[in-house]
Lab assay of single mutants.
Amino acid sequence: MQGVVKVNSALNMRSGPGSNYGVIGTLRNNDKVEIIKEVDGWYEIRFNGKVGYASKSYITIVN
């Protein structure tokens, strides 16, 4: 499943599904990501070869 990031500035990509996990990357508005699965309001995603987590509130699913 594919998604597009929708933010005003930047979205942190984290090592786990929560804001208490470390930041491993930064996503920008309109970045395209691969959604692997949903975990407690977060998406596990793949972006630029990295796998991490981002809040699903800021990612819109596209077909």
Rank of each mutant, 00 (worst) to 15 (best):
E34W: 06
S15I: 15
N20A: 13
N63K: 08
I24L: 10
N48C: 05
N63T: 15
S19Y: 12
Y43F: 14
R46E: 15
E44C: 05
V39M: 10
T60D: 14
K32D: 08
V5E: 01
G41P: 06
S55F: 10
S57P: 12
D31S: 06
G3W: 03
R46F: 15
T26F: 11
G16F: 02
T26N: 08
G3C: 03
S57D: 15
E44F: 10
M13R: 00
E38Y: 06
W42C: 02
F47A: 09
L27F: 03
A10G: 13
I24K: 04
I45Q: 00
Q2D: 13
V51K: 11
S55M: 13
V7S: 15
L27S: 01
V39W: 10
I61V: 11
N29C: 05
G22T: 14
V7K: 09
K6A: 13
K50P: 02
G3K: 02
L11E: 09
M13G: 01
L27D: 00
K50D: 14
G22R: 08
W42N: 02
I36T: 07
E34H: 06
K32C: 05
K37A: 15
I59H: 00
K50E: 12
E44D: 03
N12T: 13
N12P: 15
N48W: 11
K6V: 14
M1H: 14
S57C: 07
E44L: 08
E44H: 07
Y43H: 02
N20G: 11
L27K: 01
K56F: 04
V51M: 11
G25H: 11
R14H: 14
G25Y: 08
N29G: 08
L11Y: 07
M1V: 13
G16R: 03
V4I: 15
V51T: 13
G16V: 01
V7D: 05
G16Q: 03
V33L: 06
A54C: 05
S19G: 11
R28D: 13
G52T: 02
K56W: 04
V23Y: 05
K37C: 05
K50Q: 15
K6F: 05
V39K: 07
V5Q: 01
N63M: 09
S9W: 11
S55D: 15
S9M: 10
K50N: 13
N48Y: 10
K56Q: 10
K37G: 09
N63V: 13
E38G: 05
Y58P: 03
Q2N: 12
I35Y: 03
I45T: 03
D40K: 08
E34A: 04
S57R: 11
S19R: 11
T60S: 15
E44G: 06
I35E: 00
G22K: 11
V5N: 01
K37M: 07
N48P: 02
W42P: 00
V51S: 11
V39R: 06
V62W: 08
S55R: 13
Q2A: 12
V4H: 07
